[in-house]
Design a binder for these strands. Structure first.
Length: 662
RNA sequence: GGCUACGUAGCUCAGUUGGUAAGAGCACAGCACUCAUAAUGCUGGGGUCGUUGGUUCAAAUCCAACCGUAGCUACCA
């Protein structure tokens, strides 16, 4: 039996869980569930990544302590992950005594090994807030192209890279003060000392070859010492024997893997050192995105090695999530939070879709929603769940739900069991795409078989009842095999199937032992089809989430952009509730005598009768939008986050309908 | 600019060490079936495997250049 510790990258406290986090945690969860199903001793730990300037500032803004912010985020994050079936053994926090202890211990070890040195550096400093500024907290005019409002590291407009001190008219994002240059002494980890070690480590099967190739770029003599210090004020752990110096968040974040596991050990009978000591025989697997390769495949193994701990057995790197072929974008509504997704879809559908796309490569994963809808409907519902559905009525009506005492066709059942080694390899390598392909191929076979033997025809012929029972017994057992194979991917769907089979949990070896002479429970639909308009609803909801935040937009538009919008005063002629809609009111507006029908999601905030006769402002040249309840020919302007807090914009007295608003 | 990947039917992808592999699913068209959540089965159209050269008896598969895409990195070779 293997002993395995698995981690996903720690989600940062200052932000909601989105589809990108979910890709990684679903991938990790599938792998972990597979290992457990195989009977391995496997633990899956994660935690909140809590430290850093962003958390500190965000807490300040909300007038709460960072600790409160972190705890609140932890609760929300766990809720999201749990909804998607992610089963951690421990989901802890980096702001813990365990983490501080281990971080301090590791730092001390690094020091003893002579890999920590001090260096005085110059950095921008906000004299009003009295704090040093990271590049992204400074904005100014690009020295190359003159674009305004550019961050301190590179220009979004022309792509130039520069240092924050080169910016023209630099301003602190925090106080708008002009930053000054100030010196400070920082502690550095002397990474170049580990070049040889890392060259060896990164080419010894610990990472995918494509990752290894990429890493050689950095390892080709271009490793630099790593600044592990941040100056106060900073939310984090103080560096021992220093004043006002804190560990950079990226030092203690990976250590959070250890701390989380330590916490878990303290509550169970597992020995921490078995897993982390230098000569550990256990496995350690990290799942991460390609954006943080350097932290996990350079800094982290070097630090562990230097501090006398074991290094990871493998770092599994996945690609980024794109939506409909593009980067997730808040304005397009494709920046989709976990909470939003699960309001509109059963989480299992995302698990399935990701699994169907994931491979051991670090290629980006695109969520194409057309593809998403058809895959769920045709593969999961149309093929897979269709199998028991095709048999259930025969079994219930004629056989009291009791399966036959033997299998009519051992070969087909044996064939299905025969692919198990192949499936195992795929899971082990993280090639769930292949698992799904194999399983769906088998599901096709069952449907073909059923069409061929046509139990519905036999059922009409007296004396053929036994054959019908044989056929259904085989089909149900083949379906059961597929359930075993898919259990790590869609655990809830399989759980519902287990209920149907009688309530016993499926085991990996069950593919060799058919269910016979056994009473099933009544069949109930296992998964609902989904529709394209659910996708549209979700994308709209994602846009609303964005506009309800209080962050002012950083995208500047010029006057010609603004002039494209034809804003008009309109009078409300009629207003009525829309049957079947939760939020919509149907408004008939008059603009200069022309009638328009406009749907507005303001039902919770306004009574239809109170609106009739009012003057409102509409976007008159908005493309007509076909909604489930009709065509909307414009948009009524309103302020507020939504729900009951919506406030319609009205012109002052004297404005007449049809007037242009500028 | 450099580096690392990738570019196969409308979409998502298989194609093992070069030799009947040009394939699957979805989508589309026709037929069949009616047990099933308008599900399923069969048949068919559709690709000069990014482009151009080269190696070879033989290339989607190896090599080179170019084009395109993505990411990393940078004006230092």
């Amino acid at each position: 039996m293997r002993r395995i510790l698995v981690t996903s990258a720690l989600p940062y406290s200052n932000g909601a869980i989105h589809l990108g986090h979910l890709l990684e945690h679903i991938q990790t969860d599938i792998w972990t569930r597979y290992q457990k199903l195989r009977g391995n001793e496997c633990y899956y730990v994660c935690a909140e990544d809590t430290h850093g300037t962003a958390t500190m500032l965000s807490a300040r803004k909300q007038k709460i302590s960072p600790e409160e912010l972190v705890e609140q985020a932890r609760i929300e994050h766990v809720e999201d992950f749990t909804a998607f079936g992610i089963q951690y053994d421990e989901y802890y926090t980096t702001h813990s005594s365990e983490n501080e202890e281990i971080a301090t211990l590791i730092y001390t070890k690094l020091q003893e090994q002579g890999t920590i040195f001090q260096r005085t550096i110059e950095q921008l400093y906000d004299p009003e807030e009295k704090c040093f500024l990271a590049d992204r907290y400074v904005k100014g005019i690009c020295p190359k192209c003159g674009a305004p409002d550019q961050p301190g590291d590179n220009c979004d407009a022309c792509g130039a890279t520069y240092s924050a001190t080169d910016l023209l008219d630099p301003r602190s994002e925090l106080s708008n003060a002009v930053p000054i240059i100030k010196t400070t002494t920082h502690y550095f980890f002397d990474l170049p000392q580990f070049e040889e070690f890392l060259k060896e480590w990164t080419t010894s099967g610990t990472v995918q070859t494509e990752v290894s190739n990429k890493l050689q770029e950095w390892l080709d003599g271009s490793l630099k010492p790593w600044d592990i210090t941040r100056d106060a004020p900073y939310f984090g752990f103080r560096i021992p024997n220093s004043e006002n110096k804190y560990f950079y968040v990226w030092l203690d974040a990976p250590i959070g893997y250890m701390a989380s596991f330590k916490h878990w050990c303290n509550h169970s009978n597992i020995d921490f050192d078995d897993f982390w000591s230098k000569d550990s025989k256990c496995e350690l697997h990290h799942f991460i995105g390609k954006d943080i390769i350097n932290f996990h495949a350079l800094f982290w193994p070097a630090v562990l090695n230097c501090a006398g701990f074991r290094t990871p057995s493998a770092v599994h790197v996945h690609g980024m999530v794109t939506v409909n072929g593009e980067k997730m974008s808040k304005s397009r509504g494709t920046f989709i939070n976990a909470t939003t997704f699960r309001k509109h879809f059963e989480p299992e559908t995302l698990r399935y879709y990701y699994a169907a796309r994931l491979s051991p490569t670090m290629a980006d994963i695109d969520i194409n929603f057309d593809d998403f809808v058809t895959r769920i409907n045709s593969e999961l519902v149309g093929k897979l769940v269709n199998i028991p559905s095709r048999c259930a009525n025969f079994l219930r009506k004629s056989f009291n739900n009791i399966l036959d005492s033997k299998l009519v066709d051992r070969t087909l059942f044996g064939e299905f069991a025969g692919v198990q080694p192949q499936i195992q390899d795929c899971y082990e390598q993280g090639n769930t795409r292949q698992v799904v392909r194999i399983v769906m191929g088998l599901a096709d076979r069952v449907n073909q078989y059923l069409t061929e033997v046509a139990p519905w025809k036999l059922a009409r012929i007296p004396g053929k009842e036994a054959e019908v029972l044989q056929i259904c017994t085989l089909a149900i057992n083949l379906y059961r095999t597929l359930c075993v194979y898919l259990k790590p991917i869609v655990p809830k769907l399989v759980e519902r199937s287990e209920e149907f089979f009688g309530g016993t949990k499926l085991q990996w070896d069950d593919v060799n032992q058919p269910l016979l002479d056994h009473r099933l429970r009544d069949f109930t639909p296992l998964l609902q089809r989904i529709e394209m308009n659910q996708v549209e609803d979700m994308l709209n909801a994602s846009k609303q989430t964005k506009s309800s935040t209080n962050e002012p937009s950083t995208t500047m538009i010029d006057i010609t952009d603004f002039e494209k919008i034809d804003l008009r005063v309109a009078a409300v002629l009629e207003a009525s509730l829309v049957k079947g809609a939760d939020k919509l009111l149907e408004l008939v507006l008059s603009i200069d005598g022309n009638k328009r029908t406009v749907f507005a999601g303001i039902c919770e905030a306004y009574n239809p009768n109170d609106l009739v006769g009012r003057k409102v402002v509409v976007v008159a040249n908005l493309k007509p939008r076909t909604m489930r309840f009709g065509v909307s020919e414009g948009m009524v302007l309103a302020a507020g986050p939504g729900g009951k807090d919506i406030f319609i914009v009205s012109p002052d007295d004297g404005a007449e309908e049809g007037m242009t608003v500028r």
